[in-house]
Amino acid sequence: MHTFKALALFWLIALPGIVNAQDGYVCPSNGSELQQLRIYEINRSNKDTFHKRFQDHALRIMKRHGFKILDIWESDSGEKVEFIYLLAWPDKSTMDLRWRKFFSDKEWIDIKKRTAAESGELVREANGQPLTRVSYSPACAKR
């Protein structure tokens, strides 16, 4: 009986995120309804300092605030260097709340002040945009 209840509970929770019955597509679930693409234009002259700060401090503090980072990239077009990462969130309100907590985290504020004083501006511009997968994405399969 417990196995049946557990299986039924799994399908009640997982199925809505996996199947879009309206149009017959089945999408893989990554445990998140919302992803967020973050793109920072970083200064070429101190990109190593940026990477060190992100790796040694930002990742740790983000983890403490419940961030789920899926992947991280760097893009160098010759004209500019961009730092790009993808996050997964259960919903927009959680995303907004956790970003507010991260940006008001005293340790993060102190680290940013210290690195700016030592190395100058690390990030020229930062943009984030929430992404919601459409049912006809190549990541989804037609039933």
Rank of each mutant, 00 (worst) to 15 (best):
Phe4Ala: 13
Lys5Phe: 11
Ala6Met: 01
Ala6Phe: 00
Leu7Asn: 09
Ala8Ile: 10
Ala8Met: 10
Leu9Cys: 00
Trp11His: 08
Trp11Pro: 00
Leu12Phe: 02
Leu12Pro: 00
Ile13Pro: 02
Leu15Lys: 05
Leu15Trp: 04
Gly17Glu: 12
Gly17Ile: 07
Ile18Lys: 00
Ile18Trp: 01
Ile18Ala: 06
Asn20Val: 02
Asn20Met: 01
Gln22Met: 03
Gln22Thr: 11
Gly24Pro: 01
Cys27Val: 02
Pro28Asn: 10
Ser29Met: 04
Gly31Ala: 07
Gly31Thr: 05
Glu33Phe: 09
Glu33Val: 09
Leu34Pro: 13
Leu34His: 05
Gln36Leu: 04
Leu37Met: 14
Arg38Val: 10
Arg38Phe: 01
Ile39Asp: 03
Ile39Phe: 03
Tyr40Ser: 11
Ile42Tyr: 06
Ile42Leu: 08
Ser45Asn: 11
Asn46Cys: 03
Lys47Cys: 07
Lys47Asp: 03
Asp48Ala: 09
Thr49Ser: 08
Lys52Cys: 00
Lys52Glu: 08
Arg53Phe: 10
Arg53Tyr: 14
Phe54His: 11
Phe54Val: 08
Phe54Cys: 07
Phe54Asp: 06
Asp56Arg: 04
Asp56Phe: 05
His57Asn: 15
His57Lys: 15
His57Leu: 09
His57Ile: 11
Arg60Lys: 15
Ile61Val: 14
Ile61Ser: 04
Ile61Pro: 03
Met62Trp: 05
Lys63Met: 07
Phe67Pro: 08
Phe67Tyr: 10
Lys68Thr: 14
Ile69Gln: 14
Asp71Leu: 02
Asp71Met: 04
Asp71Gly: 13
Ile72Tyr: 01
Trp73Leu: 08
Trp73Asn: 06
Glu74His: 12
Ser75Ile: 07
Ser75Met: 12
Ser77Thr: 15
Ser77Gly: 15
Ser77Ala: 09
Gly78Thr: 13
Val81Pro: 01
Glu82Met: 03
Ile84Arg: 05
Tyr85Gly: 00
Tyr85Lys: 12
Leu86His: 05
Leu87Glu: 13
Ala88Asn: 15
Ala88Arg: 04
Asp91Ala: 07
Lys92Pro: 04
Lys92Arg: 08
Lys92Tyr: 02
Ser93Ile: 09
Met95Arg: 08
Asp96Leu: 10
Asp96Gly: 01
Asp96Gln: 13
Arg98Gln: 15
Trp99Leu: 11
Arg100Ser: 09
Arg100Phe: 03
Arg100Lys: 14
Lys101Arg: 13
Phe102Cys: 00
Phe103Leu: 12
Ser104Gly: 05
Ser104Asp: 15
Lys106Trp: 06
Glu107Leu: 12
Trp108Ser: 01
Trp108Tyr: 12
Trp108Met: 06
Ile109Gly: 01
Asp110Lys: 14
Ile111Thr: 03
Lys112Arg: 13
Lys112Cys: 09
Thr115Ile: 09
Ala117Thr: 06
Glu118Cys: 01
Ser119Leu: 05
Ser119Gln: 12
Gly120Val: 07
Glu121His: 05
Leu122Gln: 08
Leu122Gly: 02
Val123Gly: 00
Arg124Trp: 07
Arg124Val: 13
Gly128Leu: 03
Gln129Ile: 10
Leu131Pro: 03
Leu131Cys: 03
Thr132Trp: 03
Thr132Val: 15
Thr132Pro: 01
Arg133Ala: 11
Arg133Asn: 03
Arg133Gly: 06
